[in-house]
Nucleic acid binder design. Structure first.
Lengths: 112, 112
DNA sequence: TTTATATACATAAATTTCTTAGGTATATAA
DNA sequence: TTATATACCTAAGAAATTTATGTATATAAA
């Protein structure tokens, strides 16, 4: 787990990226997927995740589809074309930012 | 200039890294150095910088030395041994975080 | 059987971090 | 004399997140 300040500002980018690669995902699924992909190093908190999903929906970049699974509710999120554009922009901006920080902090370029 | 949310959480790391490479620097100098090194892409705001410098001093990782230059004041900051250790830890953590984000966002490793 | 854990949503108070705006003051170039 | 640069500082407000809490079902463990 990283110190919480580092992760700040990356939540929207992460959500949009994962949703632009998948047909649809629900909130809890996003938390599990991020945990899995990062080996537990990044864990989305529900208190941050759900309000952000609601905001992205209100903004028109995500649409929802509520489904009953057994007796529980699941709210699936899909990305809109506008959202895909936004996801691309955010990911590209973050890639640029990483390059800048890599240089500023004197880190070796990562060669895999 | 990056969207302001991206830069969040990186301020302390940037300050500590620059001060661990230099004998001493003053606040305004830090803003100019970061602007120069990032081609204007990151510009530290004084409202964020000065309170953070004060906090790092209170924490014992920085010490100060006030100097009169002409009729103006300059407050030079130097990093303590504890601060150098913290700088190292923060930079290493950020490097790890960059690797994680690079993978999560499906970015190509940067080969310079 | 009741306890803990996992699934699955949500909100709200408090905290952290930053932006924006303002204040003081000197030096210099237009 | 006006704008820009240098050089410090604080405080109100905004933004993003953490922490805490709530609801509810399902399942594995003790």
């Amino acid at each position: 787990m990283y110190s919480s300040e580092l992760i700040k500002g990356t939540l929207k980018t992460i959500i949009l990226k994962l949703l632009s690669e998948s047909d649809e995902m629900y909130g809890y699924e996003l938390t599990q997927r991020v945990k899995e992909l990062t080996g537990g190093k990044i864990q989305l908190t529900e208190g941050a995740l759900y309000p952000t999903l609601h905001a992205l929906e209100a903004q028109g970049v995500l649409t929802t589809n509520v489904v009953n699974v057994g007796n529980r509710i699941r709210k699936y999120y899909s990305i809109t074309p506008t959202g895909k554009q936004l996801a691309n922009d955010k990911v590209n901006e973050y890639a640029d930012f990483i390059d800048t920080m890599t240089f500023l902090l004197g880190l070796k370029p990562n060669m895999g």
